[in-house]
């Protein structure tokens, strides 16, 4: 390669007389990039490791079967586990059908303008801080009627809807066009096509979206602070009253100066993080299996 004839000032080979320096910069940049990735991985390991180390020693069967401590007694998280399961379960029941319908409208029925309008709405709703969603439900319902697990679930459902709807809509748009066309050409009405061709094809992706959304809202504290936080810390299944939850429990315990409370906070954090990680792994497995079956078919 002769670079002598080239006079173009933007020519990058013109500086080849600095090759040594340019290679050193290249090495430096690679080093910085590797270091940054290592830092992120180290942070993850550090946080997970600390939670595991500090939490594991506190965990025994009693921790899962007893409710929170009163005074000077070693307590458990049974009440918070039940509350979290009920609230997140209700949120899922509320959010998933609505989210899938919204996604179907955007992907199957809406024109390009309407589709982009509703997509932006979902993204903006997704960007509303969780604490504001808590305040919204607080002002709308809690102010007059008092806290309740149902209102907590509604707040979490508002957070879930945009996540699940966007994930579903993206998957629906990946469903091959020819499947829809074949079905419509056979005279199957549109809604049946969506119900029995498009949704079953997309079910893996939809499930992945749901699982990830569940994992995320299961760790949300701020919306529950306003809707389901003033609790008795007793085992209760009464969804018309506020129920204790895992994240709110961790939040309250973490602000306590007592070492016993802090130890309980670590243990509860370990349970929550284990749930979240397992859900994320489940989502990955579903996504991979679905991809393989699509590729295989």
């Amino acid at each position: 390669m002769s670079s002598a004839q080239i006079t173009d000032p933007y020519d990058i080979t013109a500086s080849s007389n600095n090759l040594g320096r340019r290679r050193r910069i290249q090495k430096l940049v690679s080093f910085v990039a590797i270091l940054s990735a290592a830092l992120a991985v180290a942070l993850l390991a550090l946080v997970l490791g600390t939670v595991l180390f500090k939490g594991l020693s506190q965990i025994d069967t009693a921790f899962f079967t007893k409710p929170a401590a009163l005074f000077g007694e070693k307590g458990g998280i049974a009440d918070a586990l039940i509350g979290s399961a009920l609230i997140v379960g209700m949120a899922m029941i509320m959010a998933v059908p609505i989210a899938i319908l919204v996604a179907i409208y955007i992907a199957e029925y809406a024109g390009p303008k309407a589709a982009s309008f509703f997509r932006v709405m979902l993204d903006v709703l997704n960007g509303v801080p969780a604490i504001i969603v808590g305040i919204f439900i607080y002002g709308l319902l809690v102010v007059g009627k008092g806290q309740s697990a149902i209102y907590g679930a509604m707040a979490l459902a508002i957070l879930m809807i945009p996540m699940v709807a966007r994930a579903t809509q993206e998957i629906l748009e990946l469903v091959p066009r020819h499947l829809r066309e074949a079905s419509l050409a056979l005279g199957v009405p549109r809604w049946r096509t969506v119900y029995s061709i498009v949704l079953p094809t997309a079910i893996g992706g939809i499930l992945t979206g749901v699982v990830i959304a569940v994992a995320r809202v299961a760790g949300e504290t701020a919306p529950l602070l306003f809707t389901s936080s003033i609790t008795q810390n007793q085992i209760s299944f009464d969804i018309h009253n506020a129920l204790p939850t895992l994240p709110v429990r961790i939040f309250t315990l973490s602000e306590s100066p007592s070492p016993d409370d802090q130890a309980a906070a670590w243990a509860a954090a370990l349970v929550l993080i284990a749930f979240v990680l397992v859900m994320n792994i489940v989502a990955k497995v579903i996504a991979n299996r679905k991809r393989r079956s699509l590729e295989g078919g």
Binding site: V47, R216, I250, L272
Partner: peptide, 24 residues
């Protein structure tokens, strides 16, 4: 795997990160 680990960093609930933040 590294991309997965960076993603998992986002999966840590904020209250757990806060607990780590305040105590460690």
């Amino acid at each position: 795997p590294i991309a997965t680990m960076v993603e998992l960093l986002a999966a840590i609930p904020s209250v757990v990160l806060g607990l780590w933040g305040i105590l460690v």
